[in-house]
Structures are given as structure tokens and as C-alpha cells.
Design a protein around this nucleic acid. Structure first.
Lengths: 228, 228
DNA sequence: ATTACTAAGCAGCGAGTAA
DNA sequence: TTTACTCGCTGCTTAGTAA
């Protein structure tokens, strides 16, 4: 939908067409929007054609009402603005599902990690991680994410090798609680890995290449990163 | 501000430019918005020129951040959408202040009315009403208002004449509690009258011709009007 | 790689007007 | 009165390209 039409639809909604039929002539609307009567008329025709409003043409004015489609568009807009103003403690990341090499399965099976996940995240993850390659445009957000403290999963060593510290962030994918995990060393990657108490691929029916959104709940920012 | 630019500003905000500096190239933005690189570049130049964003041009990408002006614009949008989705029990009316013939002063001084106002609205109005001629475009909303039950102020008679019933709706003008009063008979007027515990003209420094907004709090709808 | 100029083409605007 | 068509014009978009 073109921004111009959305703008008109919003105005109609505010005039009352969201919940009732309103009587507005093309000239009324034109005056309100500061465009010509012809342009206002064209807007209304186009909005109807694209299924955002219904029109009843009388001899005097026209009775307008938003359709479900029209209301949905505005609802979507509303939710976007809500993100901006009400969910400042969340980061919304979009990216593409892909298959890693299976290392995730190994690491997320290690007792010394699992114990910490249980204690600090409140759930025992199923083995394996869901890899998501972040949309290049949102790399800034990934930087932003890394400026938050998150939850520390401590490093540990066995006789044979050592396992590095990991930062976690509580998250949600389609209402399923999960967590983003990031090795403390590997900065500047465009990939995030998700652990969850259920198999996300199966539960959400995900395939490689699917585009998904992750909502990450951040807390306090890191001291050193505060002035980015 | 043009709807197109608002659309771009909103996208930048959602990418994180609301609270942080983000790194976005004109081509990144172009891909995201599905326009050419040149157009995206022009958008950014225009947004900066009009003071909605700040730009730092590096050799790689540009660092963008919303200005206070830019944030304010989005905040205003947000509040509009909030009206639509969170304040369904309110009607926002805009109109022009004008002087009546002073009858308001007479009626609002009558004890039998004043007693009822006190009891049912919770305040004793100062004598006189503020007349507001509703913006023609919003007449639909006035019809809508009349479909709500409101608060009944009963009729009464003296030896000499009778005084009609009145419907009131609790309201607010610039955070001052007040009430819209409508004679039960006179339908199809484009005027509303406001009573308040203070002199609105003085308190809000209003003159004839000033455009004001009234927020009306409605409750249940009238049975007979429900299918308008 | 990335920005942003100029020029040409095209979409959208409003005047005129019919219904 | 009000809607909505055609058409000329303006201004926005993109291609080409310099820096």
C-alpha cells in the first residue's frame, strides 16, 4: 500500500470510519487533506478498489466505512509504533533460517552449559541451536544487542580442552520462549543462534531459507558500550 | 511532512535510528524500501534538510540518527493510532469557538439544573456555556455522539414555563474536566455547548474563532441508535 | 564501495467538464 | 450538489555517471 493511501485511510479512520459509516463528500475530504476534489475522489476510488473501504454512493455525499482489510493495515501500523514507544527493552530482529554444521548440538549437550542454562534461563534447552542469518540491514541492531549485558554463561575446562563463556538474551519466537546465545569471543558475526526448550524447527515448522522474527528482551546496557 | 518521507522516517526508526546511530547505506535503504539507490539517497538528503535526522557521511555507509523533531513526528503519529485502538470510549471533536446570545448563562444559573449537574457530573458549573461550532467534516462524529446514552438532566417546570431535559457527556478540554450539554430536542445542530467548573474562555485564553479540541467520554450506546 | 548530480521519462495532480 | 472522466502539466523517479 502506498504511503499516500495509508495517510488517507488513517484520516478516514480518525473521522470515525473505523467503527461507523461516515458521510463525507469528496470535496469535504479534499478540503481536509488540502488537495483538489478530483484527487480526493481518486483516493476514495483507489481505496475502494484495493479493498480498504466500502462506499455507498448517494446523491449527497458518500457513506464510507473501513473494511476488515483496512482496519488490519492500521492495526499493523499501530503495532509498529507501539514497538517504538512501548517496547524499548526489546530488539526485533529479522533473519533467515539456515543449517549450521551441527556444532550447536554438541555444545548444547554439555552438562556444564546445560546446568547454567537451567539455572539462569529457567529452561533446559533441547540439544541443537537454530541458526539465523540476520538481514544485512539489521546488523546495526545486532551491534546494539551486543551493547547489552545479557546473561553470562561461564566458561569451564575439562582435562582435554576449555569451553568459552557465552552471553544469552531471553527471547521469543512466535510466542515460544527461547534465548539468543552468542559466544563471548566471536564478535562481528551476522548470525545468531537460538536455544529453546522445544525443537523450534519442528514446532514452528521451519525450513532453511524461511524468514523469521526474534524478539529479544534486553536489560541493562554494558558500561563500556553506552556511548556508541 | 509528506507521507512518503514519514514512511521513510518510520522505517529508519524501526531499524534502530530512534535510539541509536545506525549504519545504513543508501543502497541498503533502497533495497529495503524497494526504490532506486538514487531515490533513497534523495530521501535521506531531504530528511536531513528538513531536520528530521542527522547524518554522518563516512566512506562506508552513513551513520543516521533521528533528531528530536523526527522523534516528535513519530510520537504524534503514535498518539493518533492510540486514539483509534485504545480510546474507543472517547470521541475527539474539533471546532471553532464562538459567542452565543448569552442564553447559556441564563440556563446554567437555574438552581434546578445546577443541582443536577452537581449531583450527576460532580461539579457545579460556572454560569454560561462555551459554544463550539463543529468542523463540518466531523458532523458524523456528532451524530455518533448522539447515539450514546450520556447522562440525563431532567426537565422541570415553574409556574411560568417549563425547561427541557438535557443530555450531558463528561468531557475534557486541555486537561480541564468539563461536560458537553445537548438539549434533548434540538437534534441536527452543528453546535455543542460546554459547561465547566471554571470559566473556560479565561482559563484557556480563548477568543472567538479559535479552534479547539474536546475529548468526550462516552459510555453505552442508546438501544435505538445501535445500528446506525 | 558509496554518494549524489543531471537529464529524461513517467506517474499523479488539478482544471475543465459531463453526467 | 456531487462524482469522476479526460488531458495537459508538474514534479518525482530512475538511469547514467562523476567524484
Amino acid at each position: 500500500m502506498k504511503p499516500q493511501l495509508l495517510y488517507v485511510l488513517k484520516h478516514l479512520a480518525l473521522l470515525g470510519a473505523f467503527s461507523d459509516k461516515i458521510e463525507v463528500s469528496s470535496l469535504d475530504l479534499a478540503t481536509h487533506l488540502k488537495v483538489s476534489q478530483q484527487t480526493a475522489s481518486r483516493y476514495l476510488i483507489e481505496l475502494e478498489k484495493q479493498g480498504y473501504i466500502t462506499r455507498e454512493l448517494g446523491i449527497r455525499k458518500q457513506r464510507l466505512n473501513l473494511t476488515t482489510k483496512g482496519k488490519t493495515v492500521l492495526q499493523t501500523e499501530y503495532l509498529l509504533y507501539k514497538r517504538l514507544f512501548e517496547h524499548k527493552d526489546r530488539i526485533y530482529l529479522t533473519g533467515t533460517v539456515f543449517s549450521g554444521m551441527g556444532e550447536g548440538k554438541y555444545y548444547t549437550s554439555l552438562d556444564r552449559y546445560v546446568e547454567q542454562f537451567k539455572e539462569k534461563l529457567g529452561f533446559a534447552p533441547v540439544p541443537g541451536t537454530l541458526n539465523i542469518e540476520i538481514n544485512p540491514l539489521e546488523l546495526s541492531k545486532l551491534h546494539l544487542l551486543r551493547s547489552y549485558r545479557g546473561i553470562l554463561i561461564k566458561s569451564f575446562s575439562t582435562k582435554y580442552r576449555s569451553f568459552g563463556a557465552v552471553t544469552c538474551y531471553p527471547a521469543e519466537m512466535k510466542d515460544i520462549k527461547c534465548a539468543v546465545i552468542q559466544p563471548r569471543r566471536t564478535h562481528y558475526s551476522n548470525v545468531i543462534e537460538i536455544i529453546a526448550p522445544v525443537n523450534l524447527r519442528k514446532t514452528l515448522n521451519l525450513k532453511d531459507g524461511d524468514i523469521v522474527e526474534v524478539i529479544i528482551f534486553v536489560g541493562e546496557r554494558n558500561e563500556k558500550s553506552r556511548n556508541i
